[in-house]
Design a protein around this nucleic acid. Structure first.
Lengths: 347, 347
DNA sequence: TTGGCAACCTGTAACGTTTCAGTATATTGA
DNA sequence: TCAATATACTGAAACGTTACAGGTTGCCAA
């Protein structure tokens, strides 16, 4: 069916959505002039410009996205690429809010492009590039040698990564300083007398796994504490698995007296495992955990927390992508968020 | 700048993305024929049809979204409208996954359209409709008399609501049976001897506030238990406020011995408040709570939970919207999800 | 007066798609 | 044999936008 408007002439009191043609008719100008006037082109007279813009505002003109996109290739879309199995709930929610807050006053829309375990993480990225579905892309779960980043750089598609790469290539990113987090967590535990520490790390393969492990081990040797290996699970594992492994670990004679945990949900599992083994948090063992919302202290007061804002990450990532689209240098669009102090429960 | 391709003729080994014109050249047919062949139009010869489709698949032809959208008005977009202040974290994450899972094998993209406290909830909906930005809309935080639903029905825009309305108008929805939830929660508590119950309800104004309250009060009179008013806070309030109000309540002599809570995060606050008052969960008071992920039992084993799947909600809402777009009767696209049993901690 | 030039404006074409109104060829009915 | 009809295909136009290549004025210098 053809959805063409019934009033072929735009003279009728247009109930239809106004277009450049409508504006051209109303102002008595050509569509070209109207188009340029709306973008403040210098070859349009100042008075005409103001007049066109006034009328446009009055009748609520909004450029047709499909028209612009077809003609220019510009989609005015940012895509957030998410793994549907392994992203943290709080991550998804907060990063979306961060991104949408940043693009709120722009013409950009946010589309969410998912991929699942069964798929190559490259799939959604390739899809977006090949179909020209977005002007900019945000990817998470960044790897040291990340084929997605490499591919996007090759294609010249603006993007930003949540987490850094380590390929000698320059691109926008936002990252939380997980080295500092793990380092400070260890120091804090050591300062309270804990000497045998275990780390529940991010999944191997992601860049911040390395950062976290390095921060952890560096601090261990600096404070003279030792590590109790706990690398059969990562924060990608299920609650049940982490809990079971923790309980297992805590029943050994060489059990740790301190944990550093990279994710809040995993921390719930660690604590459950500790208690399964009949031990008591705060007495037998301390746990320092990252969290993105203020829930862990409700869970157990004895927990020690470090806050990481995913909302900030979302905003920064969106800012970076928009900046790149706007012509800024990719190298100038990198940010690293420092962890705050390790926080015990405050009254 | 004009981004027109350098090879004006499509004869060159097209490094560019193939279009109908490319296919037309390769098959020796006209673009019209190609277009129709791809949609299995009956007036195209069976052999030609197969040939075109084969070539299209071979070279990876994908219709240009902007072209289709400009010509037909079809956007192939579903928009999820979210409140950035009050949606639950788990809700956002799971509903997005549910929706994306359902639209994965369709040409649809999901865009997230946010609105904040300061805005009229109608704003994003009006924006979407006026700019024709989506073929279908999913809205949450549904009200008994919901102006968004009324508006979308008037405009004939396909949509589905998370939660029901009560305006005598028929439209697709998915809802969790919160009446049954509250009812069964009360019965369970009563069966364990609890007699003075408090309800932490959804925010007044949303339809499921009424459902929940009704299920609660109906069950109260059926089992002969009494209500302890707890309506100074709702699940929209902050953790701190709920906690404080709970503690306040629990210090009164006529304190409740059972709670029904409509959201997991709020339950954490309730428990904290209970403990602030020096009381013990499971001994002095029991709490039945909805949850959307299996975390509450890690938090306190004594909690009693009822599961609500937001992922299911996302899938069902997407299915409903797609169904409406596909021409199904709105009235046939309604679903109500029954709560499972109240679950105590299982070893 | 005229040529040159700046300032301001305009028509046409094109992006990729679908619909409309055909055309050409083969097939049928009488 | 010829017209009517069915089958298979096609060109042109249009959706709304922007880039290109102009077109008019009016003014100034020569």
């Amino acid at each position: 069916m053809d959805r063409r408007r019934t009033n072929e002439n735009d003279e009728a009191t247009a109930k239809e959505r106004p277009t450049l043609k409508t504006l051209a008719f109303m102002t008595g100008l050509g569509v070209t002039t109207v188009s340029r006037a709306l973008k403040d082109a210098p070859e349009i007279g100042a008075e005409t410009r103001r007049r066109v813009q006034l009328v446009a505002k009055q009748i609520g003109y909004r450029p047709n996205r499909a028209g612009v996109r077809l003609r220019t290739g510009k989609t005015n879309v940012i895509s957030l690429v998410l793994n549907t199995e392994h992203e943290l709930m709080s991550f998804v929610s907060d990063i979306i809010y961060g991104v949408t807050a940043m693009i709120a006053d722009t013409p950009y829309h946010l589309i969410v492009t998912p991929y699942s375990r069964s798929q190559d993480p490259m799939d959604p990225v390739r899809y977006l590039v090949e179909t020209g579905s977005a002007d900019g892309i945000i990817i998470s779960r960044t790897q040291p040698n990340d084929p997605r980043a490499r591919y996007l750089l090759e294609r010249g598609v603006p993007f930003a990564t949540h987490g850094r790469t380590d390929m000698g290539l320059v691109h926008p990113y936002h990252d939380f300083d997980n080295y500092a987090f793990a380092n400070e967590a260890v120091r804090y535990l050591a300062a309270t007398g804990r000497r045998r520490l275990a780390l529940l790390a991010p999944p191997i393969g992601l860049t911040y796994h390395g950062h976290t492990v390095n921060g952890f081990t560096d601090a261990l040797s600096e404070v003279g504490a030792s590590e109790v290996a706990f690398n059969t699970v990562t924060i990608d594992h299920s609650i049940e698995q982490i809990r079971m492994r923790t309980a297992q670990l805590m029943r050994r004679s060489d059990r740790p007296d301190g944990f550093v945990s990279s994710a809040a949900a995993s921390t719930l599992a660690i604590v459950a495992g500790i208690e399964d083994a009949g031990l008591k948090l705060g007495r037998d063992v301390d746990v320092v955990s990252k969290q993105s919302s203020e829930l862990l202290h409700l869970f157990r007061r004895e927990l020690l927390v470090v806050n990481e804002s995913f909302r900030l990450a979302g905003s920064e990532l969106a800012r970076a992508v928009l900046g790149w689209i706007g012509g800024a240098e990719p190298g100038s669009l990198q940010s690293l968020s420092k962890p705050g102090e390790v926080l015990p429960y405050r009254g």
